[in-house]
Computed example of a mutant assay.
Amino acid sequence: MLTQQFTCNYGVAYKHVVAMGTEPLDATSPPVILSTLDLLHARTRSAIPLSQEFNELYPVLYLEHQAMNFHDDGEPGLGPVVSSLSLGSTCRMKFRLKAKHQAQFEGVRPRDRTVLDLPLRHGSVVVQEGHDLQKRRYR
């Protein structure tokens, strides 16, 4: 296997470890992309009513027993709201503090720094709001 994941990008260019193209996120996008975007907008607005339109959709497919490493979603050009849609089998989304912010939060064990561990089922949407969230933690 030559890749850990299968992905594509629609909207704002995504700075990734490997070179990848970006497709437009507009009326010419495939119907599945547009319907997913509509679903994310609806679910996000139920949590944050005044949230703006998303400017990027970045679908990623992982095979069984694969996982996403800790990272932040603080790409330049992205807005303050990031919504994630989980599809397929149940998984866990863990949030941990970046080491440089550890001292500010008593009660968080220095060894793992995990501050939130969410079990996600098929169709779960996780809404994250605020640029500071991307600066202080990894997902």
Rank of each mutant, 00 (worst) to 15 (best):
V127R: 02
V127Y: 06
G123W: 01
I33R: 05
G11I: 14
K98N: 03
T90C: 11
G77I: 08
G123P: 00
V108G: 05
N69S: 08
Q66N: 14
L40P: 03
V17Y: 11
D132K: 13
A99Q: 11
P30K: 07
G74P: 03
T114I: 13
V108R: 02
R111T: 15
P80A: 13
C8T: 10
P76D: 15
R137D: 01
L34S: 10
Y14L: 03
P49W: 03
S51R: 08
L40I: 09
T7N: 09
G130Y: 02
R43H: 06
K98Y: 04
R139P: 01
L120V: 03
P59T: 11
L50A: 09
H65R: 14
T22D: 14
A99C: 12
M1H: 06
T28E: 06
I48F: 12
G130S: 08
T3R: 14
P76V: 10
L39P: 09
G88W: 01
G123F: 02
E106S: 15
L63K: 15
G74A: 08
T90P: 08
D26S: 09
G130E: 03
N9S: 15
T22C: 12
G123V: 00
P31H: 12
M68V: 02
D73K: 03
K15T: 15
T28I: 08
Q134N: 10
A99W: 04
Q66F: 05
G11L: 14
A47R: 13
P80C: 14
R45G: 04
V18K: 10
V32C: 13
L78I: 08
L63A: 15
P31R: 09
V60K: 01
G107A: 04
N69E: 10
L57R: 06
F6I: 14
L57H: 04
Q5H: 10
L50W: 05
Y10I: 09
L133Q: 02
N55S: 12
T3W: 13
L39K: 08
L87C: 10
R113P: 00
Q5C: 07
G21L: 09
